[in-house]
Amino acid sequence: MATSITSIGVDTLTAGSQASSALVFEPFDLPPSNQRQLGAPHPAGTTIPLALRPSHSGVENIDLDNVIAAVKGLQSQDKILTQQLALHGTLLFRGLPIHNADDFSRFAHAFGFKPHEIIGIVVDRPVLAPNIAPANTAPKEVLIHSHNESPQVPHAPEYIFLYGHKAPTKGGETPMSSSLELFRRVQEELPEFIAELTEKGLLSQITYRKEAQYPGGSTLKEAFGKNIVDGDDLATRRSKIEAQIARYGRGIHTTWEWLDNDEGIVVTHRLPVIRTQPGTQLPTLFTSLAIFYTRKNVTEQLYGDGTPIPEKYLKRLVEITEEIRVLHRWEQGDVLVYDNIIAQHGRQPWEGEQTDRVVMASLFDGDEVPGAYGNADWAQVVQAFEG
């Protein structure tokens, strides 16, 4: 198993086949509160995020077409931006001519990733543009701890794009941290916890109901009912929902139980918390346990054998996560791109009005899903099949 990540030198990112006057991205430093050097197993000097901005050298007026051409050019060269994501975990793009959901959609799609279909969504995400939706719309007072996207279901995106359309005056920062570094720290301090997670995995039990269970939450129909039409009887509705759940392709490791009086369904997954990064095979702690420890909601997570996870482990997991994170202070137009396999994100509360912070999200699949850590048959996740 590999034990390190190969560093990719970054001075200026440019598509080599383009003329010297083509747009390039140049790295720049952020204040220490917004950027830090990652710990092991990342190479020394690796920062999170890698901050990039378009260079005006040789380009009189930068427009979105210039930016998209630059992104596509870099991705045509051994997927340079994808490689940078695998190294840094998060990229920040600042100073881009992105002003709305459609601009953001064009930029995100330029990377060449496949749009991710969320199966079993637990939050409400109305479509704003192709593959663009609001980020979490929970009330501004709600703290959303650092987490990987969709660890409570078998089918998670590999890449997350966040666009800051409107930034609050105070608060509302987005955390970023490394899941690779988190695993290393937890392994050093709590080896018995890592051993338990390796042996047992996790039971993720999610309750979906006919009505949303909390502000910003989804309904059962939004989660699994995309093929339901008016006039379907109870048996047909349930059959269509069960067919969507079966798309996870997890066999005995995903089960469900209908609630009485057609009120909803409880879906249970046995999942790996520890997964591995494609290429390096380094273990990554792919989890949202910090959220479920600090904010109980519709998801219960236990060890894979059904026993509770000791509170002392969860408490220290939250503390370590906060020790290794940085908080991104949004500027209007910023775009953050996360490699969801190895980087965590979240949301800080903010002052003012709910509408003072507007962040949009776009989710994509990669060429590979995380690998298994261990030999158990439940330890490997797959992308859901089409349906």
Rank of each mutant, 00 (worst) to 15 (best):
T276G: 00
I265D: 00
L259G: 11
G216A: 13
I241E: 00
L259A: 02
P272Q: 02
H253S: 10
Y248L: 06
Q213K: 07
A243H: 01
G225P: 07
K210A: 13
R209M: 09
A212M: 04
E257M: 12
V229L: 14
Y208A: 01
L271M: 06
A243P: 00
D232Y: 03
L220C: 02
I228D: 04
L234V: 15
I252A: 15
F224C: 06
G216T: 08
T255L: 10
H253K: 12
D262Y: 07
G249I: 13
Q213E: 14
Q205I: 13
L234E: 15
I252D: 15
I245Y: 04
K210H: 10
F224E: 03
R250G: 05
V267K: 01
T207H: 10
R247N: 09
G217F: 07
E222Y: 05
G249C: 12
A246E: 09
H269G: 07
L234W: 10
G231K: 02
A223Y: 00
I245W: 04
G249K: 08
R237G: 13
K226V: 11
L259S: 04
G225C: 09
R250H: 13
I252R: 15
T255F: 08
I241S: 03
D260P: 09
L203W: 08
G216S: 11
R250I: 07
T219N: 06
A223M: 06
E222T: 13
R275C: 05
E222N: 14
D233W: 07
L259Q: 15
N261G: 10
G216E: 05
R238W: 12
I206M: 01
V273C: 12
E242A: 02
